[in-house]
Design a protein around this nucleic acid. Structure first.
Length: 588
RNA sequence: GCGGGCGUAGCUCAAUGGUAGAGCGUCAGCCUUCCAAGCUGAAUGUUGACGGUUCGAGUCCGUUCGCCCGCUCCA
């Protein structure tokens, strides 16, 4: 790893090279593109495949490269390949339907456009007629909340951000004694507090009634101008500034909140046929956990691995391929006994970090970051922890962007699927439990805990591209791609120094030999056009680690020159040793 | 989604409202015994798209698509 950090690299230059050399194209480019989608060109596709293969080989086929697990035994991983479209109930169980991403509302009246979760916005509604009863009021409110076709008489008089109606009531109660007394908690279909209210304004001292009620999304969409800005712990001055009903407020409509792509199964395309493109590959693994256990001779602890496309209707696709709407994941769900989760979490976190480093993402650009407890996902709160392997991309520098997340998901997913599918997900562990008189363990039933190392393949490719990109004003190409030989899309090139004297023929022989042996791992280039300098320069930009050149001396003593991409050094080796030389450098 | 910037050849960029150009790259030929060398030649654009103003629009206006930067997020 050189001193070159990504902070000194230009993302624009990297993107230009990606286009120029056929790594990444904008998807549907000739039609103006589609936001959030990218295509891989010839070199990019090979690079991506090499990374996916490296993961597959090291994780699945070699079981963590043969490294022993925390129990001292080989790590067992088996693969699956599950559908992008599953029964919609899968996504209800996983929690993706209805709330994958929380809807946000922006308050533009605050200087920095403060934003908060729309479902945390509560309103204080007051009866608009003194004679109304609280029951009538709630009835009307709930009726309007459910029927989005009717026009709402008016929005809430006050709003605040709170985690629940009770907390919201507390905030409202603190507003300058506007609320004299809380009458009771309404015992209807919801638990929304109803209170007695005496206005300081006006000349009536009869109580009127108010209720704390969530502000429905559709009210925000259609009546954002009628909804007062939210506040917390208001001062008297602030309260005086709350826009009265009907006046302009700056709450914006909440943004879309289901980030799954919808589609239809069958040709009729009715509401009953709705299905979703998976937002993660993980659920395909969880729902097949029992199948794998029942049909494969695996026993806990073991992992199930899968690579594949996933889809998220991101609000803001950005940063080249970093946040795409269609992307590929490399996921492992590793199942183990709850007592062993901590040890396995640590094991995976450290090994996955090591893996990325071994592929060339070493140095200061790669960090392992343990999550703070307050940023944990709901399913990980009880677990041993969550950590990210993060890379310092040029567009995130000096910060980092996530490459892979390692999370202890506890038994959350299996439990969810067990509840929703009514199918038993528990694992019968015959190695546990008290010993029976005959010396056999009694066995133990339990829901395994899951450690999930989930990596973004496209993000991995992007990180490799950024890391490899190495400006060098001293060489003709001004830049070269310093790919690790293992993942380099072009493994080597063979050139005749000049196109005469039998050099092209000799070079073709060497080229053919290399293709036979290494062609399945990546491209072996042959080029006899133009000057040798141009050909070297082209290989620099493509990131080919080695170039073999046939020259006049080759025809005399059978040696060729090897040009090292990174050091620019040239050494002579016998022609017959070229395949072994390359094989050794590629680790094959 | 909101705010700001941008969109001309494969790439980097020119062109007062008046005939769309250059460099590099690509390709062909010649030459060439190690780093985009040299010479000759060639191909490449509905100026992102649609509409409007104008005698005339790459240029001005509107709409739309896309990209970049912030707010947000997470594989």
């Amino acid at each position: 790893m050189g001193e070159q950090t990504t902070t000194t690299k230009s993302m624009d230059d990297i993107m230009a090279l990606c286009k120029r050399r056929g790594f990444v194209y904008q998807a549907s480019e000739i039609y103006g593109g589609v936001n959030g989608f990218w295509d891989y060109g010839p070199l990019g596709a090979q690079l991506k495949k090499n990374l996916r293969d490296a993961w597959w080989q090291d994780v699945v086929m070699l079981g963590c490269c043969g490294k022993a697990g925390p129990d001292g035994k080989p790590v067992r991983i088996v693969p699956v390949d599950t559908c992008i479209i599953q029964n919609p109930k899968v996504w209800e169980a996983s929690g993706h339907v209805g709330g994958f991403n929380d809807p946000m509302v922006i308050d533009q009246s605050t200087p920095d456009g403060k934003r908060f979760r729309a479902d945390h916005l509560y309103g204080m509604y007051l009866t608009w007629s003194i004679d109304e009863s609280p029951d009538e009021m709630l009835e009307v409110l709930e009726g309007y909340a459910n029927d989005t076709t009717r026009d709402f008489p008016h929005g809430p008089n006050l709003t605040c951000v709170a985690s629940g109606p009770e907390e919201a009531l507390g905030v409202f109660r603190s507003v300058e004694k506007k609320i004299r007394a809380e009458i009771r908690v309404y015992e209807g279909s919801h638990r929304y507090p109803v209170f007695e209210y005496i206005s300081k304004r006006g000349d009536h001292d009869k109580p009127i009634f108010g209720a704390v009620f969530p502000v429905p999304q559709w009210i925000l969409k259609r009546h954002s101008a009628c909804v007062p800005s939210p506040f917390n712990a208001p001062s008297p001055e602030l309260f005086a500034q709350i826009p009265p009903q009907g006046k302009v407020s700056e709450l914006m409509a909440p943004r879309a909140f289901n980030l799954m792509f919808k589609t239809y199964i069958g040709a009729t395309a009715t509401e009953d046929d709705i299905a979703y493109l998976r937002p993660e590959t993980a659920q395909g693994i969880f729902i097949n956990f029992k199948n794998v256990v029942d049909t494969t001779r695996v026993s806990l602890p073991f992992g199930i691995a899968q690579t594949g496309k996933a889809f998220r209707n991101e609000v803001t696709p950005r940063n080249f391929t970093f946040r795409s709407r269609e992307f590929e994941q490399m996921e492992i769900e590793f199942f183990c006994h709850p007592d062993e989760a901590k040890a396995w979490y640590t094991f995976w976190r450290d090994w996955r970090m090591q893996w990325w480093q071994d592929l060339g993402l070493g140095g200061e650009n790669l960090i392992l970051r343990e999550h703070d407890t307050d940023e944990l996902a709901h399913y990980a709160k009880e677990g041993a922890g969550t950590s990210d392997i993060e890379y310092r991309f040029p567009f995130t520098a000096p910060g980092y962007g996530e490459l892979e997340g390692i999370a202890d998901r506890t038994n959350f997913d299996l439990k969810q699927h067990q509840e929703h599918s009514k199918k038993k997900m528990e694992y019968h562990d015959t190695t546990r439990g008290e010993l029976l008189p005959n010396g056999q363990p009694k066995g133990e039933w339990y829901l395994p805990h899951v450690i999930e190392p989930s990596a973004g393949l496209d993000r991995g490719v992007l990180a490799l591209l950024c890391e490899a990109y190495t400006p060098d004003p001293d060489r003709p190409s001004k830049v070269y791609m310093k790919f690790h030989p293992r993942i380099a899309p072009i493994k080597a090139a063979v050139f005749p120094l000049v196109k005469k004297d039998g050099m092209p023929e000799k070079a073709r022989e060497i080229h053919a030999a290399l293709v036979t042996r290494f062609g399945r791992f990546g491209a072996i280039e042959f080029d006899e056009k133009q000057s040798i300098g141009k050909r070297y320069a082209r290989m620099d930009e493509a990131g080919a680690p080695f170039c073999f050149t046939v020259d006049g001396q080759t025809l005399e003593d059978g040696t060729v020159t090897v040009r090292d991409r990174d050091t620019l050094e040239q050494t002579r080796i016998p022609e017959a040793q070229v395949p072994d030389f390359l094989g050794e450098r590629l680790g094959l």
